[in-house]
Structures are given as C-alpha cells and as structure tokens.
Design a protein around this nucleic acid. Structure first.
Lengths: 286, 286
DNA sequence: GAGTGGTCTAGACCACTGT
DNA sequence: CAGTGGTCTAGACCACTCC
C-alpha cells in the first residue's frame, strides 16, 4: 500500500515524465547526454520499475529520448533540417516549358528533378506502376466514380549506402486520360522519359496550375522503418493536384517526408508600393 | 515459464498491436467501433494484461484509437480537415497594399485577418507582448547577436464555447527596428491596428517578400492540451520570415496548427504554352 | 453493480552494451 | 561480466461509464 504517493491525482509516471521533460528542456540533460538509469529513477521516486518505464515510453513517443538495449537512454539529438523542399513557381514553369523541348534536351534533365541533400550517384531509383481502382478519397479528387481505374506510379529513391529512403512519392492518373498513348502504360518506359508533363502533352493535356496542400500525420510502422525515423517523429505529407487547362484534375501526387529532417519552403514575392518611399533601394542581400 | 510464446523474437505487444492495426486498416473495426476489451484480448492471446495494454498504448500514440476510463477503447474518428490555411500571393499583396490606405479603411479589416472555420463572434482574441532576449535560433534568423532584444507578440484566438484554441501565433521583431515609433511598444495598442505592415511602414519598413517554411513536430503536453488534440496527432508549424526591401529579416512569425484538422494549401499558377494548341476547350488535338 | 480501462508492485528472465 | 534496458506475469486496487 504505497498509494499515498498519488498526491494530486496525477499519475506517477506522468510526474516522472514531466520532471524529466523539464530537465531536458532546461538543458540539465543536454542532447546526447545519458539519463539516469531505470534503477536510479526507481530509487529517486521510491517506486517499482513500471512507472519509470512508462515515463520513458512517454518521452520516447514524444521524440525527446532514444532508448536502446544495453545502453542507457539518451536525450535525442534532433537532426539538422537537411532536406529543404522548395516550392517555387519558377521551377514548375521551367519544367512545364521543358515538356515542349526536343527529346535530347529533355533527356538531360532526366530523373534529377529534385535537388536532394544526397549526391545523385549514391542513390538508387526505383519506379513501379500498377493499375488500381480508385478509393473513395482519390475518386473524390478526380471527381470520378469510386472504383474507376487509375494508373498508380510509385517512385522511390534510396541512399544506397545506408539503405535509407530519400524520396518517396505516389502518383495517380486516371487510365482514361492516358490510354491514348500506349507507351505510357508500358512499364519499361518508367520513369516516364522527359518528365510527366511531356508525356501528358502527348495525349493532349496541358497543365494550368498545381494545387498543393500540406498535412502532417503519424507514420505507420512501415513508413517509420523505410525512412529510418526515430519514434515520435511525424511525417509531412504533400499532396499536389495537377489541373489542366480544362479544369480537370489529371494527376494526384502524394509525397511524404520525415518531419524532423525536412522543411517545405516557399516564397511569396510582393510588388513594391507605387511611390518609392525609400530613396535608397539599397542592396538586396539574399 | 511461458516464454515459449515469443516465436520470432518480435515482442508480444507488437504482435498484438500489429494484428489490431491491420484489422483497423481493413475496416474490421470501423472508425468509432469498440475494440475487444483488455480481458478479451488477454484471453485471445493467452497472456496477462501487460502486453495487451502495451499494445493499446502503441496504437493510441499512433493516433489510431482513443481510450477513456470506464468506456471501451474505440477506433479514433479522424476529424475533417476544417482548417484550411491558404497561402496566396494575392492575399499578402492585398494586405500590403492596405497598409498605405487611410486609417478608416484599414480599421474595417481589423483583426479578421484570417478566415477561420469558426464564426468570429464566437471567438475570443488575446494578444500579449513582452521583450525577450533572442535565443540562438532567432538570432540566427535575424542575423543578430544572441541576446539582442526582441519584441515578442503572441496572438491567440480561442473558441469561447469549447475553450479550444483556434489560432496561435508568436511573432518576433527586433526592438531596434521599431523603437522609432513609441506607439508600437505600448501594449495598449495591441493588436496593432491596421495590421503589422502599416505599423512597420510608420518606421520606414516596406516588406519585399515572405519566405515561409513548414515543418511538423510532436506537440508538447501543453500544446496538446491547448488545442485539445488527441494523443498521436502531430503539430504543423509554419514559420514566415518577413523580408524588407533592404534584404533584412524584420519579423519572424511562428504559427502552429493541429495536424489532423489542418491543411496548408497553395496554388502555383503556370502560364500557357506559347502556341495555343487547342483552339477550343474540349478538343484533344495531338 | 458489472464491466471497463488506469495504475502500481514484486519478481523473474532475457538481450544487449560497454569495459 | 556488470550494468543497462526489454518483456512478461500475477495480483491488487482504483476511477470511471453505462445500463
């Protein structure tokens, strides 16, 4: 009967977690530092190992500590935000214009569509595609009936050395839109040479705009493993709808990024006020 | 004693969690449905309650189920994405141009800067501001020495009925930039009438562009409580740097949004290909 | 009041790390 | 091999919900 410790109805493991969390935040336990062992914490809080382990589980799921067998728990070191996904109208426009250029010119760009934080020769690119029926969600985006046939194309780039995922994206296109060009349904042509937009051009589709939306979710265990993400790290999801000049959604592309290493960034350029108030336009450092 | 159950070195609580996760994904347990009770799962897996509870904890932290006292665990119902944060150059430009308009015109816009999913008369707006020294991170953004004095302004909008946070944003501005206008340092003037940019205009600052970046983090317990977020739901973070015509970062604004109810969206408009290939919409010339 | 989940204990054994 | 964290059990009591 040691229940008298529950002073204010807040569970002991929460008290322990709160205490450790505060000490981590204050810097008493710096990133990389080892935490007291389970036995030491038991001794300090005069309890069995259960509450202590529960507290550590809480902090692990918050992404604050890492635990491994045999070694003491440590304050997690948040990685640098190495992956910066820049969304710029210029880049999209460039890619769009490229779609009209001759074959040899398009080929030069090839698969290096995105600037990653990893040299491209250290990565392995794979593409797979299948035909799938549209689920409710995708059918809604395309304004099709659920079950309509879609071309599903999955792109993955892994860092060959560490076997860590660097880029992952899944794209869906209604079969009905692309069956005019049989080449597009031939898996041997993956990745579509010269980029999506040239291929879409071959079936008479011109992209008018990209509507993107960003959300965050908790990764599935599979996703966490693919990206080799620590527990407690969320996943950034970027869904881009390609809309053609007739207003149809012709492609839905879903990309995911580990939330702790990635920042999705974009710039909104504003025009100047009419009267130039600052006499010195000065230097425009970047 | 009963250790022979550990067939393939994968922990029992992981097996249970994997099994339940799969059943949830397959729809066997639909959103809102009750899961088997802890005792039933013990019976099914022939184990004590520990592994079963551990499995449920895993699923809770993944945001897949909700648990409460007395009531059975249920599959979590993901909320609609009611909060859609739209980033448009037009809106920013409009706000910029507004800064030059006369007082009465600016006042009409007032605090309703953002379209929220909640009627504005059901919300309570609070603003607080303090002077704080720049931490390393903010000092880096402003290219100032760590410790330089900043004006910190915190905006919060809560839905008065549910006491739920609807909007939360923290903005930092170097004191040195705004001390030319004493009004800006007077808390009674919060929120700055007519918007930030008019106030910045009074000290000779014109915004050239906004550089935004989006990340995702695990919320602190405090944040989770403020937003009344379920466990396992990440937080979307939007950091916007306001850069003036001289290239200086003059304001850093950090907004957070619950990751399950929010989508940050934007559109990239592309210009048409030079040769008008389709004279009339609806024809697919090749 | 019956059933649910929440918390905690005491003890056992295992897997792994580091010295 | 000493110390660490990981897993599981059996049992107890509590707080809460729902009928």
């Amino acid at each position: 009967m040691t229940a008298e410790r529950t002073l204010g109805t807040v569970a002991l493991h929460d008290q322990i977690a709160d205490d450790l969390r505060e000490r981590i935040a204050s810097g008493e336990y710096a990133p990389g530092a080892t935490l007291p062992s389970v036995r030491q914490l038991q001794d300090k809080w005069k309890c069995s190992d259960g509450p202590v382990r529960d507290a550590l589980t809480i902090l692990r799921n918050e992404g604050r500590i890492i635990q491994s067998r045999g070694a003491p728990a440590r304050v997690r070191i948040a990685p640098e935000r190495a992956l910066s996904i820049s969304i710029t109208p210029e880049a999209a426009q460039t890619q769009k214009d490229l779609a009209l250029r001759p074959q040899n010119e398009r080929a030069e760009t090839g698969a290096s569509e995105l600037a990653l934080g990893v040299p491209i020769d250290q990565t392995a690119f794979t593409a797979t595609y299948t035909r799938v029926p549209a689920d409710r969600e995708l059918a809604g985006e395309f304004e099709l009936q659920a079950g309509a046939e879609l071309l599903r194309r999955e792109y993955r780039t892994v860092h060959s050395e560490s076997d860590r995922l660097v880029l992952s994206s899944v794209s869906h296109i209604p079969i009905a839109l692309v069956e005019g060009n049989p080449d597009l349904l031939d898996e041997k042509n993956e990745p579509w040479p010269g980029g999506h937009w040239h291929q879409l051009y071959t079936v008479g589709i011109e992209i008018d705009r990209i509507e993107s939306s960003i959300t965050a979710i908790q990764p599935t265990p599979r996703q966490r493993q693919d990206w080799k993400m620590d527990p407690g790290v969320p996943l950034l999801c970027l869904r881009s709808l390609s809309i053609d000049t007739e207003g149809r959604v012709v492609e839905v592309a879903d990309s995911t990024y580990p939330g702790d290493r990635t920042a999705i960034s974009f710039t909104q350029q504003l025009s100047r006020w009419p009267t130039t108030r600052r006499a010195r336009p000065g230097r425009k450092a970047v």
